[in-house]
Design a protein around this nucleic acid. Structure first.
Lengths: 203, 203, 203, 203
DNA sequence: TTTTAAGCGAGACGGTACGTCCGGTCTTTTA
DNA sequence: TAAAAGACCGGACGTACCGTCTCGCTTAAAA
């Protein structure tokens, strides 16, 4: 009753795991280019067809991998906007940092935004990948938008503060640094950033 | 005098122009992927060797093209920070918009950041391309940083405002929207953005 | 006694028919390549497993189909060797013609021997298919060999005529034309052929 | 003078040789199926593109290889039709024998016509391959047709003998045996065959 | 009536090869 | 020298198709 009834052989859950694991490993020590689908399949011990049944494109696969990388951001509220924002931006920066290292020799101090940029590019190439990427970021950001909204309602922020805009300014600055300027995303910068954003916002 | 003495056939200045033109045209109606070096050479009526003598890589070529797209931003100061910023961000948004359309059917209202992202990715792939990209943006931004600095000195902005951070917040928000969120960069948004940035900054 | 006794669900006779029909239809309008087992099953509305339970290989299936195509050659003796041979070779030629058209647009006057050759190739790939093919041809040819033998005994042919060799020459010429030369197998040719074969053979 | 003038880098003659050699070797010890284009290229130490520039298809390549296998049939006339025919058919049979062994373990006494059939099938799949195959056989057979024609003119054969038909009967018998019947092509059979063909033909 | 053996539908899976694409380099002839 | 032309190397991509496997379900004979 209710259940649709199983048709055909079910997809192998193990294949998913092995593929994503292999892909992640490969992505991290190769980077986007030099990442090859054939190699993922081989490393996972899975047929290429099985991979392509799940992700129709290298881009799709990589985005799935990245999503898994990013999807573990437990946030807790302390009630203090400044420290909450600082902590959250720190998490984002750390996440970007994990991606930043993909494909670069660990020793190289290079600030490479390659993977992030590639993901954005992939998002632009395929509409569905774009949707997935936006959803991924939306999930990540929803908490912070809520946090800003609550702070405003509590009177901790001016009434005319627009959470969305403020958030764009904060996150945007990080991405801009990473992708364009190439300057570091350290704690000091994050402090300055939060400070600047809250200067006019706090009541 | 002093000149090394020209040996052999001189480089054809015309080739440069034809190549860049062809590349631009192709880039605009194909986007980064589906843009092929062979095709550029063919369209320019120039040998591939000639192209590679000038730009050692597809990435290099494309960045050169993009630089030409972006490098015409004459800015004039009106003396009023708010309007100056608004105007300048408008210019940036317009430039991004030109790139945004690359390779997308004109009709599609899609907000595609493909080219921008690809350029960032290219910057991450080759150190020299990265330097060129940063220089390009640095040239664009220097004026605004100067503007903010002067406004601070004139007392129009608080003494503890950090121009660099404020600029990151402004430009970053635009790029974040474009690359990640995919939401529009219209005049209304720019107004809200400048408003938010100046709320706490103006004296 | 001896009989195993029927266990389990019996095979569906309908499936056989539907599969062979679908396969034949597909074979005729696609040819050997571009004939896909999946498509046969789909078209027959039958599971692939069901198909493979009957024919372990695409080759086996196709040979089964071809056998059905060829197995309807009722021959009657008139008593006159020349006319009997002519008639029989005409039947063979017609049968080959049916196969000849497989996968070719009806309009194309092309003399394509594709299917015949593919069957021969399949026969070479699998011993059992080879046996089946030989048996099929043996059935077809037995009658003619008998005919030649009787004519010899009746004195209509020289005593030293070897039916087997003569038959090879007749049938062989047809196949050689079809497979190698690509020239037409019309009635005129068959007459010349029989004439040539009987020149020295008839007493 | 008249020459078109060489443009661009000329094709590497060495590549041709290495590819054909590699392909032949592979074909002989694998047979048509299990013959892989990638492997040929690898074995020849040549890029796959280079191969595909010459032969657009596995079929084309294989036919080229087979043509080389068959194209060395120097025939000399002795003036005696019977012995000339016997010798020539012997050559054909030997050539077929070389192909017959392709892909079969040397030990196996199997009479496999695989490669011949595959070539015929390939000829049916692509019009241009078909033309090449016919040309190949035409070259081989022209000599014998001429021989038969001369013998007729010399009065060695009846005036109403049609060389073309006789030849079809002879060659056809060989191919029919090989492809369909699977019986051996030994010297004894060839003698019987020539005898049968000449019975009525010789004046 | 319950068990057991097998067939069936659906579709995922492993494996292999194909032919294509494209980036970048090399080898010619000609200017 | 540079330029034009085009072959070359290398490597990945995504597709196609074969034949096997794994489910859940159905059919009939056997216990």
């Amino acid at each position: 009753m209710g259940s649709a009834g199983q048709r055909g052989r079910p997809r192998s859950g193990e294949a998913d795991v092995r593929l994503l694991d292999a892909a992640l490993a490969l992505l991290l020590d190769r980077g986007y280019d030099r990442f090859s689908v054939d190699e993922v399949a081989a490393k996972a011990g899975v047929a290429k067809t099985t991979l392509y049944r799940r992700w129709p494109t290298k881009d799709h696969l990589i985005v799935a991998v990245v999503a898994r990388l990013q999807d573990s951001v437990p946030v807790e509220y302390s009630g203090d906007v400044r420290s909450d924002l600082t902590r959250y931006l720190g998490e984002i920066a750390a996440g970007l940092d994990r991606m930043r290292r993909a494909g670069r020799p660990a020793t190289s101090g290079e600030t490479s935004a390659g993977l992030v940029a590639e993901v954005a590019a992939a998002a632009a190439r395929h509409a569905d990948v774009g949707a997935a990427v936006q959803a991924m970021f939306h999930r990540r950001n929803a908490l912070v938008l809520a946090l800003l909204g609550q702070a405003r309602e509590r009177g901790e922020l001016h009434a005319d503060v627009e959470p969305e805009v403020v958030f764009d300014q904060l996150a945007g600055a990080l991405y801009y640094r990473l992708l364009i300027t190439g300057r570091p995303l350290d704690a000091a910068y994050i402090d300055r950033l939060v400070g600047s954003a809250l200067r006019g916002a706090s009541a």
